[in-house]
């Protein structure tokens, strides 16, 4: 198999996994939450409009991250362009994560109807988002390091 084909296959694999994990699975989960809302004893406070907003951002940012995953994965190993696209992908991932919070997916008001009593409580994932953002920030630093290495001390390895 020639290098072009290998690159394309690597890229396609990465894009496909990104589409499945970042668009299809979240979309299915949010749609099923909405469909099962009437059947469940626990109400998570998701309305049709709220789920539509969440799905809009999932599809919008998910498609961008999937295409960036293709571009990054199809680049040759240790090349400067791989490092550049890695940084852009990390930034896109940060936007994807932020828009999850922004769209209201993580503002969950749980209402439970237990028959004799109805209880409501709020779940806040604020700190979890901050830590995830911090990890993304660290990934960005690693991406920058890769970029510097690819220019300053290129790895001479036969690929």
């Amino acid at each position: 198999m020639d290098t072009k084909m290998k690159n394309m296959l690597r890229g396609l694999g990465a894009a496909l996994s990104s589409v499945i994990t970042k668009i299809l699975i979240p979309m299915y989960i949010f749609r099923s939450i909405l469909q099962d809302a009437t059947l469940m004893m626990i109400d998570l406070g998701y309305t049709e409009a709220k789920v539509d907003t969440i799905i809009f951002w999932i599809v919008a940012m998910g498609s961008i991250t999937a295409s960036l995953s293709f571009t990054k994965a199809s680049s040759p190993k240790y090349s400067p362009r791989k490092a550049i696209f890695e940084i852009i992908l990390v930034i896109a991932n940060a936007f994807y994560l932020y828009l999850y919070k922004f769209s209201g997916a993580l503002d969950i008001a749980v209402s439970m109807d237990l028959g004799i009593a109805i209880t409501t409580f709020y779940l806040s994932f604020e700190n979890m988002v901050y830590i995830s953002m911090g990890v993304i920030g660290l990934n960005m630093i690693i991406g920058l390091y890769d970029l510097i290495i690819s220019y300053a001390a290129p790895i001479e390895e036969d690929l």
Binding site: T71, S75, Y78
Partner: peptide, 15 residues
């Protein structure tokens, strides 16, 4: 981004 990826992967496959 996808078009750019395909272009670079086919035009410049080597490092």
């Amino acid at each position: 981004f996808l078009a750019l990826g395909i272009f670079l992967a086919t035009k410049y496959p080597e490092r």
